[in-house]
Structure formats: C-alpha cells, structure tokens
Design a protein around this nucleic acid. Sequence first.
DNA 1: CTGAAAGCGCTTACAG
DNA 2: CTGAAAGCGCTTACAG
Lengths: 406, 406
Amino acid sequence: MGSTRTARGRGGAPSMVEVAALAGVSVGTVSNVVNHPERVRAETIEKVRAAIEQLGFSRAVPVRAARTNPSVVEVAAVAGVSVGTVSNALNHPEQVRPETLARVRAAIEQLGFTPNANARSLAGGENRTIGLVVVDLGNTLFVDIARGAQREAAARGESLLVTNSDRDDAQQDAHLDLFESARVRGVVLAPLSDPFAGIQRVRRHGTPLVVVNYDDGRQDCCTVLVDNERVGYLAARHMVELGRRRLAWVSELNDLQPVHERQAGVRRAVREAGRGVSLVELDTEGVGENDGDHVVEEVLALPARRRPDALIAVTDMLGASVVEALRGAGLSVPGDIAVMGCDHDARAWGGAVPLTTVRMEGEEMGAAAVRLLADEVAEGVDHVHRRVVVQPSLLVRESSAGRLPR
Amino acid sequence: MGSTRTARGRGGAPSMVEVAALAGVSVGTVSNVVNHPERVRAETIEKVRAAIEQLGFSRAVPVRAARTNPSVVEVAAVAGVSVGTVSNALNHPEQVRPETLARVRAAIEQLGFTPNANARSLAGGENRTIGLVVVDLGNTLFVDIARGAQREAAARGESLLVTNSDRDDAQQDAHLDLFESARVRGVVLAPLSDPFAGIQRVRRHGTPLVVVNYDDGRQDCCTVLVDNERVGYLAARHMVELGRRRLAWVSELNDLQPVHERQAGVRRAVREAGRGVSLVELDTEGVGENDGDHVVEEVLALPARRRPDALIAVTDMLGASVVEALRGAGLSVPGDIAVMGCDHDARAWGGAVPLTTVRMEGEEMGAAAVRLLADEVAEGVDHVHRRVVVQPSLLVRESSAGRLPR
DNA sequence: CTGAAAGCGCTTACAG
DNA sequence: CTGAAAGCGCTTACAG
C-alpha cells in the first residue's frame, strides 16, 4: 500500500518498513533500535541509524499507515526463539519455560502482533467463532435473539458474528456461504422461509447448524422454537379475562405454520371459556401487515350483534394498523373494541395507543441456540438433534386494558 | 470427526470418504461413479463399486456428517485441470476458455465446493468483508446503524459482519482484535466511550477504520456524527411552537459531549424564541436514566410561577421515566406538562403515553460509515480523514402534542 | 489458455 | 523445553 504519511502534511515520510529494508534488518530490529537500543548489537544499531538518517525517518502519527502486520517470524526474531516456540507460547503456554514465555510476550507486545486467524485456521488451529444469520434486524425478536446468542457465546469464550439477510433469500444464502467459507465453528440460522435448501447447503459440509424460529418438521437439525399455539392461547385468554365475549382472530390467510398454530391456540382458549364466548375468524387472503382499513371494513360489515369486542391480530404490525383504522372510523380502542397483536415488534410501537402483545423470549431463544450448537460441536458424530421450545409471555398495554391508572 | 450416521439409526454407515480411501481414488471420483458413471473409466468404476459393495455404502441422509470440504485439488481432479486453472476459473474467469470454465464449474457444483476463505486470504486474495463493532444492540440507534451499514455494504458487494460489545470495553477490544486477526477489509466502530485506545489498536496495523457516533476531537480517523446541537434545538423549538413558555432541560450533569451539545441547542432555541420563553436547567449530578421520580420532586419543589410546562429529557429512557413519575404524582401529560426525550430508543417505548422524541438517522449513519470506509480503502495512503454529520429529525407523539385526532 | 512451483502465516507432530 | 520441517488450501507470477 505504499508509504506512510504524517499527520502534518503530505510529506511522504518513510516508515520503519523502509528503514528495515534499507538497513537489511527486520522491522522488529528497527523497532528495537528506536525503543530498546540496549537489546541490539552495536554494529546493527549503527547500520539502522544510518538508514534512519539517510531516509529522514522520524516516528510520526500516520494519517493512514500502510497495512502491515508483524508475523510470528518477526516475533520469533525479536524474542530470540523459533517460530514453533512462538506458536507454543500462544497456544500451549504451559509447555513453555516461564522466562521464554515472558520474552515472547514482550516481543508480541512490542511489535503489536495480532495473529493472523486465517493462517491459524488453515494450519488447523481452533476456531472459536460462531456465525448467526438473521432474517431481519428491523424486527425486535431477531435483535433479541442476536443479543441472547451474543451473551451466551461470550460466556463460553466464543465470538458471535451476526449477519442480517434483510428478508432476502439470496443474501441469506450468501451469508451461509460466507460463514462456511470462513470455516466457523457452527452456524445459527433464523430464516425467512422454509430453510430446507439452506440447511442442506450447510449440512453437506458437516458444519454444525441450529435453526431458530422455524420448524421445518424434518428434524434434520437442532431447532429452537416458540410455542406459537400458546401465543394464541395467551392472547385469547387475556381478552376473555378482561370480560370480552365476542373475539375475532385477524390474519392473512396463508400457509405459514406460526399463523396456524397461533390460530389453534386462540380456538382452544375460546373453547375453554365455554358458552358465553364466541370467535369470528377474519382470515382473508392477501391481507398485508398494513391492511388495517380492510380488516375494519369487514368488522363494520358484520351485523351489530356479531360485531366483535376484541380483535387479536396475528402480528403487532397488523394490530397497530387495525388500531389506527378503528380510530379513523371513530371507534375507541379499547373502549369499543380491544385490540392486541402478537410478536413484540418495535416497528409497531409508534402508534397513538400502546399495543398489548404477546412477547416471544428472543434472548432466551438466542442463548438456547448457542447452547445447542455447543452441544453439537462437543458431541461430534454422536450428536442427536434436539428441539427447544420457549414459552411466550403476555405484555399488557393500553390497547386491551385501557389506560393504566398509574 | 469419524464416520457418518444415517437418519434411521446408529448404524455407522460408511461415507464416500471411506469408499474413496478403500478404492484408492478421490472422493470426487466416487461421486462421479455414483452420479455420472459415464465420466469414469470402466476400470475405476469397477474398483469403486467393489469398495461400495464391501463397505455396504449407500447414499443416506446423515444426521451429523463428519466435517469435510473438498479442496481445489479435488475440484481440479474431477474437472481434469490443474489447481491453478481452478483458481483462475474462480477469480479470473475471463482468462479461462469457456469449455474449461464449464467443466470446472460443473465439478464445483458436483462436489459442493465452497472455497476456504482463510486460505484465500492468506494467499493474497481479495477480502470483501467489513466488521462492525456496535456498543449495544439493545439500543435502536445502533440497530439502525447496523441495518444501514448492511444495506450499503450489500449494495457494494461486500459482506458486513456485526458484533455486539454489549456495553463492555473488554468485549469491544476483543471484537476489534477479532476483526483485525481476520484481516477484514476495514472496521466500523460505534464505541461505548472515548475510543482513542481502540482506534490506536486498529490503526497500528494500518487497518481502515471509521468511528460512528463519537467525536473524539482528534480527527485521527473518519467519523460519522449526529448534529447533537440540532437535536436539542429541534426539541426546544417544538415545545415553543406548541405554545409552551417555561421549558426545562433535564439531564444528568456530566461531561458527555452529546449532552453538552444538546443542551446548547436547547439554549439557542430558547434564546431565539425571545422574551416570553424561559428555561430552567435541571441537570443534577447522579441522575440516572430511570430517576424520573427524582426529577419530578425537583420540578414540584419549584415555586408555582416558575414551574415548567415543558420538559425536555436528554434521552428517551429518562423522558419515559419522567412521564411515569409525573403521572404518578397526579399530573397529566401533556395536559399539565409536555414531555419529550431524545434518541428514539425502543427501550423507552413501553410506557402508557407514547413519547415525542428526536430521532437520529441511524440507517443513514451506518450507510455513510460504509461509504467512508470504502473511500479510505480506495484512496490508500492518499486518504484524508473526513467527517459526515447527519441531521436529526423530530418525531411528534402524544407526550407533547396530546392524543392525535386520527 | 494452462500448468508447475513458490509462498502466504500459522500449527503440529517429531526429533533433539 | 525448543527447533526444523511439513503441510493446511489457496493465489499469483512465470513458463510454456
């Protein structure tokens, strides 16, 4: 990348690298001459100082230094040992004599040596980094998953690298390949849609993989799931406990597993509530997450005695959109109709009425995923895939319970 | 890692690797025999089939395959070319004859070859990944920064790896070292506190670095900042425009730059508003982000004619806490006192009254950082550090403007 | 257009 | 406890 430049101007000041080249010594030696001349033979000092003189070298704050990293070879030279010993000092310090260790560590410190992880990995050293591919960092659930995974990884002395596929299948694949090509220890995937192809992609190389928040039903990897049936159950039970009697389930009509499961939970709660409580299912095809107006039209079209007094939306986004539409139609929330969502999604939190929701325990999910991955790594070929199901919890806010007294 | 196992049981079914070993051929050849026997010499087919027979090998879904990646050597063998040509097919396809290219690509496909990025990087190949170290993914601002950075990186064909230091200096350092050791193209740092040491840490290796959301005043790297003076200015002007006359600035008394700047902006807006508008500054030492009670005590202790009708808190967290405390004291928000925060922080969004705030454009900040980094990489030693200042924007909600009609 | 060879920076047996 | 040597999987000149 060429030479160094001082902060003061564009002088093109020479770097230690150039001095070393001119003097025919290593950069470590030049550094020693500058910082610790007592460690260097008089003859070498003279040679280096001549080079310094000739090039007009002076230590300066570089604006943008050439990119350069000392290697084990230079560390070994400065410490006066072989590269094998440097490597041992790094990886098996207990096998190195304390004094030798101290000398190596001093050299590392002095040179600012940061081992090249690529070389280390290539040579068969241990890799303690995990990759997490997340479908959408804009959704709170996945941010929570990332945070939980990060904490668990840190607690285990591993590093977590996060990648956001931004709801794009091609990017998701690219990120899986990226982690595979980096030969990370394992991958956690929170996918957009059925991750079958992605799983195959990782699995064919035998890389440990855990899938979060998607049950493909094939059991071909460890999985962390939310109990979505319970999500719906908690929601409907909440409305019943508030005294609501005519519940409505609002969702897009589609094949997504979580949607079906939540719906099943709602039905179960209504069934358990007995005679006085009824359920209307407003699951229309093509209702997007911002189609509250559309939903409200349907609601208002119902005969008065069938009109619901509680709406449960499959997601917070849809719930928030429904709240706005109801208020736009002159109805009060929750006075006329209580509303809630599911998901605990921050994108839905800007509305006028704080939205009741069912929260999935994202941090716990992320932590569980890292634990499963660690087990898979540890167990090797004896590993048997497991699934962890995390329980959701209710979060009551104004849209169902009204403004809280305090 | 040992042998493969079928999904059906613990039979210890043999893998292609073992077949290859027994037959004395490459895995690629075994694969060819199984999938494309027409490509293999009759003699070899016989040898491999004998091995398959002897080991009882059958293609099966492995529960957990041994970890194995084909290398360029195997690709070369299958394609019938040299490894140099495989490399050229990968990196300089225009230099390879179309038919050769096709053969190499077929081999890559067939073997499921994913190049080892570590080896590639070591050998001097190009590295297109950027590292982002973020202080706290729990804070919306940094999630937005990550998303913006990720989009800009993707648009440029680069991969962004995100790491969460979780408000821990030691982890921040570890992550900087992690990216340095991986020899990423460059690093973006959204630091916890003064990043001077961290900057040195990266800079000494000449690695391109951009700092986001912290101005250390030293100009020793590219920086992306929010105009915090304007944050305060927008907040105070908003209150004035709503007709509020006695503003209060609420913050912890400390040395943080953003705090001072926001305060300065508030003062300017009040000054510009002229005679009718006054400002009280409630900046008490030791007021934490949840000390709303404490703040409200101070407010209520003021003589009636000096009691503020608008509170501007330095952060959303403090603002939300103040809202709760005011409501607890029997005051209405914004009826008696309008309140707002600064930061657009999702952690503060659970309260009963949606909080007006000033939003920092996190996505824009992240994107700008990646652009600066790309410039620094492209410009090499001719690079001169720049700073980008992003403008904040007002987000009006109920806590200042009252419930919106629709 | 293709191949043989050197080398990137490490780690790991293996001698000593 | 330490050193010399081989090798990890690539890319890059350099010959052909």
